[in-house]
Simulated scan of single mutants.
Amino acid sequence: MGVEIRANGLVMTYGETRAVDDVSFTVASGEFFGLLGPNGAGKTTTLEMIEGLRKPQAGTVRVGEFEPWKREPELQRRMGVQLQSSSFFERLTAREQLDTFGALYGVPAGRTDELLEQVGLEVKAKTRTEDLSGGQKQRLSIACALVHEPDIVFFDEPTASLDPQARRNLWDVLRRLNDSGRTVVLTTHHMDEAEALCDRVAIMDSGKLLKLDSPAALVRNLDAPVRISVAPGTLSLEDARALSGGDAVSDGDSELTITTRDPARVLSELAARDALDGLSVKGASLEDVFLQLTGREFRA
């Protein structure tokens, strides 16, 4: 179980737009790998080349021993794909959709009940797909990708339409898939999702791969200051500015924030002043890394 991916020098252009520009990376067998980037970064096109939906114009990609664009039946049986947008057979219920997908792979009918429970759609089993909400359709799409118990699974923004509860429940499903030895490849705009789930992430922009490492290593290498916030009235602005180790102090309506690269010293002095009530400490996150690499301007 689990499949290695090797992408080398991938290129894809649309007219004068170089959507994927000499992208190379390896995903280890059994790894949970994230592909991140703003809209138009090239991550979905990269994913489609790895899935075999597009043949690279240059470069090579192998999934296990196979070139995916050749659509080898043996590889297809080992892959599960949840696309950014999915279509279902008309007038079928959620159960019938899963039964149909399962039949294509020779999967026993009992697998449908297991999957409906995994994605929280048991009560919608007899509901036609056209009557499901956007989030419910998204969960059904994920179940369809898992029906044949693939060794490698691709998820393109799987939680985009989900509410917070469904999103966290899906995280548990993805973790269990990966814990069982499967390779999982994910694209997402939720940096907290990538930080919580992925062993490594690749950040893309304008078709190029900018950084690739574990979320923790990317955050650590950012060398960003820590922000320590205290509740109003806990500490005066003058006392905050007098703290050793504080680089800057900002006084907002709801809290006073101390920016520092020596949080241990600042926290020690706050403790000495009995000013720890309501305190919060926030370091850098993967979102800070993402914004530093890709900028803050609006994207189409």
Rank of each mutant, 00 (worst) to 15 (best):
L267W: 05
G245R: 06
K137N: 04
F290V: 02
R95L: 04
E72I: 05
L132S: 01
A202Y: 02
S254I: 00
P150M: 07
G120Y: 13
K70E: 12
G42I: 00
L53K: 04
Y14N: 05
K282P: 00
E114R: 08
K124D: 14
E114V: 06
A264Q: 14
S86N: 13
K124Q: 15
I50L: 14
V63S: 05
R241S: 09
R176P: 11
S236L: 14
A275R: 03
L10C: 03
D199G: 10
G207A: 01
L222E: 02
D277N: 11
I203C: 12
G246M: 10
G59L: 08
R299S: 03
E287M: 03
E72V: 12
F32W: 01
D239H: 09
V230Q: 03
K208F: 09
T127A: 11
R182P: 05
E72Q: 14
E67L: 02
D274C: 09
A272D: 15
T100N: 00
T259E: 13
R200N: 10
H189C: 02
D277R: 11
G181A: 06
A196D: 10
I5W: 05
A58P: 06
L291H: 06
S85G: 07
S24A: 10
R176S: 15
D223V: 03
A271L: 14
V81K: 14
D247H: 00
Q292E: 14
L174G: 11
R62S: 07
F33I: 01
H190V: 04
T17D: 05
V153T: 08
S236D: 13
L243G: 13
E90A: 15
T260R: 06
R62I: 00
V107E: 05
V63A: 08
T259S: 10
L83I: 00
G52K: 10
D277S: 14
G40F: 06
W69H: 12
I152Y: 04
L286R: 03
P56K: 01
S280N: 07
A194C: 04
R62F: 09
M12T: 04
L121F: 14
R200V: 13
L270P: 11
K126D: 14
R62W: 10
L237D: 15
W171Q: 11
V289F: 07
P232C: 07
R18W: 02
V63L: 12
R182N: 02
Q84N: 02
Q138I: 02
L170W: 03
V184S: 13
T129W: 12
A272N: 11
R175M: 13
E67Y: 06
V266C: 12
D247N: 10
T44Y: 01
L237E: 15
E122T: 15
A19E: 05
I5E: 06
R95T: 09
N221G: 15
Q84C: 01
S244T: 13
E4G: 08
P232A: 11
L209P: 06
P73L: 11
K282H: 10
V219Y: 09
W171G: 09
E65S: 12
L218N: 03
G207V: 01
D288T: 02
G80N: 11
A264W: 07
C198H: 05
V123H: 15
T188C: 01
E31V: 04
R62K: 13
D172P: 05
Q84A: 05
L286G: 01
A300H: 07
